[in-house]
Simulated scan of single mutants.
Amino acid sequence: MTERTGRCACGAIRFRITAPLRGVGVCHCTDCQKASGGAPNYVALAPKDAFEVTQGEPKVYISNSDSGNEVRRTFCPECGTPLWGMPAMVPLVTVKLGALDDNSDLVPNLHLYVESAAPWHLMHDGIPAFPKMPPLQPQGE
């Protein structure tokens, strides 16, 4: 599936992804746990240049990652649905799987920040797990 669409729970914010996803990750960092209410966040990695907001204006919360770089986390100002993140220095948007209109074909292919995982977080057998952020490869590799 090349084009994907998504939205918040109330429909005020809508978005589109027009290129294949680069992967699906499960983030166990404490910021993601706070955004989800305790669970890890399941995110699809979408190329920034293929991501666009098609309706509404999300609210953005800016914080710093453990590397010191800025991370922008977006959510709907009306219903509060967490939508996506935009880490600095990375050409990807981390789209929450729950914000996608159809995520039935997506499965995780890595876990990150597992050192912050609660003991009850689900870990998928057979996929790589990293204590913090995995090493990033340049696009095209």
Rank of each mutant, 00 (worst) to 15 (best):
L112C: 10
L97E: 04
S116T: 11
M1A: 15
Y42H: 13
F75T: 04
Q139W: 02
L83H: 08
S104H: 11
R14N: 05
P135S: 06
L112Q: 09
P138L: 04
M133S: 13
V114Y: 03
A12V: 14
L110D: 07
P87D: 03
G38T: 06
G140P: 04
S104I: 10
A46R: 01
R14Q: 15
C76Y: 01
G140C: 07
P134Q: 02
G25T: 10
M1H: 14
G98W: 01
N41R: 08
G98D: 03
K96C: 11
N41F: 04
K48R: 14
E57I: 12
C10I: 01
R73T: 08
P135Q: 13
I62S: 07
P134H: 00
E52H: 10
P20K: 01
A44Y: 06
T74D: 09
V53G: 09
L112D: 00
T30W: 02
L112W: 10
S67M: 08
G38C: 13
P58T: 09
E141P: 02
T5F: 10
W120F: 15
M89P: 05
T2E: 14
P58M: 10
V107E: 15
G25Q: 07
I62T: 05
D102Q: 10
A46H: 01
K132L: 05
T94I: 06
T30K: 08
R16Y: 07
C32L: 05
L100E: 05
C8F: 08
G23K: 06
P87V: 03
V71G: 01
L122T: 12
G37V: 04
T94A: 13
D102H: 12
Y113E: 00
T5A: 06
L100T: 03
G37A: 09
R72P: 01
K34I: 12
C79P: 14
P138H: 11
H28S: 01
E78L: 11
P40L: 02
A99E: 05
V95A: 08
E57T: 15
T5N: 15
Q55P: 05
W84V: 03
C27K: 00
R4E: 09
M86G: 12
C10L: 00
L97Y: 10
L122D: 12
T94E: 14
R73C: 12
F15T: 01
L45Y: 11
G38F: 13
Y113F: 14
S36D: 09
T18V: 02
R7A: 14
F51H: 07
H121W: 00
G6H: 12
C76Q: 02
P47L: 01
G37M: 08
E115Q: 12
P131S: 03
S67R: 03
M89K: 15
V93H: 03
E115D: 11
N103K: 14
T5E: 11
L110Q: 10
K48W: 05
T74M: 11
A35F: 09
Y113P: 00
E3H: 14
P77N: 08
C29K: 01
F130A: 01
N69D: 10
A44T: 01
P20E: 07
P20W: 04
Y42L: 14
G56C: 13
R72A: 12
